[in-house]
Design a protein around this nucleic acid. Sequence first.
DNA 1: AAGCTATACTTGAGTTCGCAAGCAACTATA
DNA 2: TATAGTTGCTTGCGAACTCAAGTATAGCTT
Lengths: 142, 142
Amino acid sequence: METPNLPDGAWIRFLRAHAALTRELSSRLEALHELTLSDFDVLVQLYYAEGRRMRRIDLARSVLLTASGITRLLDGLESCGLVAKERCESDARVAYAVLTKAGVKKIEEARESHLADVEELFGSRFSPQEREQLGELLGRLP
Amino acid sequence: METPNLPDGAWIRFLRAHAALTRELSSRLEALHELTLSDFDVLVQLYYAEGRRMRRIDLARSVLLTASGITRLLDGLESCGLVAKERCESDARVAYAVLTKAGVKKIEEARESHLADVEELFGSRFSPQEREQLGELLGRLP
DNA sequence: AAGCTATACTTGAGTTCGCAAGCAACTATA
DNA sequence: TATAGTTGCTTGCGAACTCAAGTATAGCTT
């Protein structure tokens, strides 16, 4: 007999919430700063990285893109002048992505409004305590 | 002064977890049943719907796709014979998506392994209590 | 040093979506 | 009953990815 149980309510909500939130956040980010959510994500990683530079492959892994995904995303950011490509002297296979001056400026401009958006759509729905717990629970996942 | 605080830890983890989980789940689903995660999502919605049919637009909204997204996704499921398209008699604008016999069979086959995968990668990381709480927290989001 | 194997990156092809625009049918307003 | 607005659906186009395959470099292993 078929029971109409929904054993994965949390998972479904997880999926729906992601779709709704990324759509809204991405569209705001695009409207105000002409950045994708992924663009922003990459720029922030670089912003906080040692010397504001990272190997492309490490960047890819840290934002969970494939190597080819990062190549194309950086193509865009490079042609906007936000990121520069530099070769590694000790290993000719690797290249670095480096935040340019314009890139630093961009991310500092965008960060504020984006964090406010994240806060509005995501953070503000939880108490500080809940927020911490949610972070802990989600942190078990990757 | 720039403080290196990361005020959105939960949000970043949310994004990363989503990327990692959907990639893995989708690839398993594709390998075993030739279904996308979205395909599966749609089929499940239909499976539990009254008469195993839904207006296409309601289906779109329930899985958070756009109208055009649903058109194309259903194109695929229709050409596989898993879903059929039916017109509405009382309103010529609307069309229904109906699960076919093959569609029912498909979803019943796929459901088991997919739920096991969700359990393995997602659910099993939490106690029943945590799971419930996570569901509640995520439920505030859409 | 010659030959594997692994790593970093790029490129071509294909997929999955969203947005904008358009059509057709319903509804409300005048 | 004309007109205007709304709703459901589809289509053209483009963006963002992934996978598979290819190139070049590095590091072993013998």
